[in-house]
Amino acid sequence: MTHHNLDNHAAAVAVLGLGPMGRALAAASLAAGHPTVLWNRSPAKASALVAQGAMLAPTVADAAQRASVVIACVMNYRAVRAILSGLERPPSGTFVNLSSGHAAEARDMADWAAQQGVSYLDGAILTPAPTIGTAAATILYSGPRALFDESLPWLESFGGSSAYLGADVGTAAAYEMALLDLFTMSVGGLAHAFALASTEGIAPTAFARFARGIGGLLPDMADRFAEQLTSGTFTADISTIASAASAVAHVRDAATAGGVDPAPLQAVQSIIERAVAAGHGGDSYARLARSLVPADPAEAAR
């Protein structure tokens, strides 16, 4: 592929990494009318975007020096460091890392960026690639407020909600990991439930009709968890942890009888049983969130 001569071009946005999400970000930037420069280890992935008007940089340095905002969207923070390690000077614009990782990695990355003289924002994309550039996209950002405000005219081109969470650069990653925890555990539970239903000959389509109703319970439960965890009061208006202990035991036995791996249920059962043993059997499910973190002496006394 032929690289564009960038000597006389300035890009509003540079996108480093052209996986599905990186390509979606670049396409949204182009659709919003921003001059956009691309870099990827495999230049062929840029062909469709170049046809739409993007500029392809031959090196990371070329891309990073010609943009008001430089976006990295690659596999992880190690990959980001590897990409930037060869730069002789920092990016000319604000560097925004939208790669996945946990909060400590984001803070380490910010420290590294400060040492290199790089203006740095961290971010987390909460929605899949097809949503980018549409109202359904949600991207979280954290880091210096001034950098976010300066970059917002370009970040808004990615669509939906660009939510600023605060100066602690690790906050966006912290949200992402907790939400991925919810998604991962929910998908695991869904797969386990379909497997268990299949052992009794229940057709997947028939089971899905009722499984959707279980998912519908979660929004209200999330609100109740938030309210009770904030107040520290775990009144069981609906169900108790003790009743959950009985329910999970029944399901574990059913899984074992049906030849379905009971390990996920055993893990949940262990969490519930520890809470009951600690005297919280009469509390609401929200108490389990407190039981999962290391004990705080002040909290233990409550």
Score class of each variant (00 low, 15 high):
Phe158Gly: 00
Phe158Cys: 05
Tyr120Arg: 11
Ala129Thr: 10
Ala106Met: 09
Leu98Pro: 11
Asp122Val: 01
Tyr141Lys: 03
Pro128Ser: 06
Gly101Pro: 08
Thr138Gly: 07
Ser162Tyr: 02
Leu165Asn: 00
Ile125Cys: 14
Thr127Gln: 03
Val96His: 15
Leu147Met: 04
Pro153Thr: 05
Leu152Gln: 03
Gly123Leu: 05
Asp111Val: 15
Gly123Tyr: 03
Leu140Lys: 01
Ser151Leu: 04
Gly166Ala: 06
Gly166Cys: 07
Ala124Tyr: 10
Ser157Tyr: 02
Leu121Met: 07
Ala103Gln: 11
Glu105His: 08
Ser162Arg: 15
Pro130Cys: 08
Ser119Phe: 03
Gln116Trp: 01
Asp111Cys: 09
Gly159Gln: 07
Trp112Lys: 09
Pro144Val: 05
Ile139Asp: 05
Pro128Asn: 04
Gly133Ala: 02
Gly117Cys: 01
Ala137Asp: 05
Ala137Thr: 15
Pro128Glu: 04
Asn97Thr: 06
Leu98Val: 11
Leu140Arg: 02
Trp154Leu: 12
Gly93Leu: 11
Ala110Asn: 12
Thr138Ala: 14
Asp122His: 15
Gly166Glu: 08
Ala103Gly: 11
Leu126Asp: 11
Ala129Arg: 10
Val96Leu: 12
Pro153Gln: 04
Leu152His: 06
Leu152Ile: 06
Gln115Phe: 02
Met109Arg: 05
Gln115Pro: 02
Ala113Gly: 07
Ser92Cys: 07
Ala137Cys: 14
Leu98Tyr: 08
Ala137Met: 01
Ser157Arg: 01
Tyr164Met: 01
Ala110Pro: 00
Glu105Gly: 13
Asn97Cys: 14
Gly117Lys: 02
Tyr141His: 13
Gly160His: 01
Asp149Leu: 14
Ser157Val: 00
Ala129Trp: 10
